[in-house]
Amino acid sequence: MDMIITISSGFFLLIGSFLCFSGAIGLLRFPDFYTRMHAVGVTDTLGAGMILVGLMIISTDFLVFAKLAMVLLLTLLIGPTTSHVLAKAAFHNGLTPKSLSNQEKNNKEISSSNT
């Protein structure tokens, strides 16, 4: 039983740290602001989720478990709110996303009607 707990929590922690690391790589590699935001989305949802689930498995106390669940819920509530506010602020202040060439006309229409 002890063995199963150790192995499963190690598995979740490994996947979570891999996801956080790839999200940070994506933050450096992607070409413009809007695509970088998707990379941060990976670390905010499943990266944080996997690490916290891995910690929940090895927690012995019920209160510790509940606090980890609280941190997970707060992360899942806060992540989309901040990325939406950030994207909306950038969009309304005239930062146009790089896009496919056949879509550029479409983008111009949207941004000119909104600013």
Binding site: F30, Y34, T45, L46, Q103, I110
Partner: peptide
């Protein structure tokens, strides 16, 4: 969310040539 995460991580490691960012109503 799990499926979308796998896709995004795959495209992070494939590099910027493989993505097609787009904006639509």
């Amino acid at each position: 969310i799990i499926q979308a995460n796998i896709t995004v991580v795959k495209h992070i490691w494939l590099g910027k040539k493989s993505i097609s960012p787009s904006l639509k109503k």
